[in-house]
Simulated assay, not measured.
Amino acid sequence: MGGLMFYWIFWSFWVYLTFLVDKKNPYRGKLSAIILIVLLLSNLQFHLRGFDIHASGLFLLVICYTFISQEKQRAIIYYFICSLIVSIGYVTFHLFEIFDPVWIIFKKEWMMGICFGYLSILLQKTLKGRLLITICGTMQGEFLYAYTLSKFPFPYEIGGFEYLDVCALISALLVCWSALENASTYIQTHYHFFEKEKQKSS
């Protein structure tokens, strides 16, 4: 069933942000509202110039552009380059799936989640940056892929549930990876602290 992974992951994010994250966190309210709006818009779609577009995907793209526009000029240029790399990779993946599906060795959603999650980790150092270039790049890739398919008799919904599943999975993998990175930093910091305490006591 398309969208099942999206609903599970996004509802989990919303519950965590709403009930478990510290209320003083500046991103808590914004992210909770964004996730809730995406969930509400997931079944809404419209037709524009021959393309079927899901409102949730378009909303995510606008939000990403808004966050990126608040950065410094050099950072905006780098975000643009990174998202363009992700977009090209996203379209290439889908085209290879059509013309040479043999190389899809396991479930497509997981292959895309791992590939683009790893790519965003290589391109950005922070969780915020990784999420922005991933969502922005994949959604731009959706438009480019739909435009490519428009030359053939293949119907395609931009930002549909198939895309939302992949987007949610990549986001979950990036959050888990970020948690592991922070956990290792926390352990190293406290390990050195305890080592110093032992040295002082001895």
Rank of each mutant, 00 (worst) to 15 (best):
K107N: 15
K107L: 14
K107Q: 15
K108R: 15
W110I: 15
G113H: 03
I114M: 12
I114Y: 07
C115D: 10
C115H: 08
C115P: 00
L119C: 10
S120I: 05
S120M: 08
S120H: 04
I121E: 09
I121K: 06
L123A: 09
L123P: 07
L123C: 10
L123E: 05
K125F: 10
T126G: 07
L127T: 03
L127P: 00
L127E: 04
K128G: 15
K128W: 13
G129Q: 07
G129L: 11
R130T: 01
R130H: 03
R130K: 14
R130Q: 14
L131Y: 03
L132T: 05
T134Q: 05
C136P: 00
C136G: 03
G137N: 03
G137R: 01
M139G: 00
M139Y: 05
Q140H: 15
G141E: 08
G141V: 05
E142H: 09
E142M: 10
E142G: 06
F143Q: 03
L144T: 07
L144Q: 12
L144F: 13
Y145T: 06
Y145P: 04
T148E: 09
L149Y: 08
S150P: 06
K151R: 14
F152A: 11
P153Q: 11
P153N: 13
P155D: 11
P155I: 10
Y156P: 02
Y156D: 06
E157D: 12
E157V: 13
E157L: 11
I158Y: 02
I158R: 02
I158D: 01
G159Q: 01
G160F: 01
G160M: 01
E162R: 09
L164A: 07
D165P: 08
V166F: 09
L169S: 03
A172M: 13
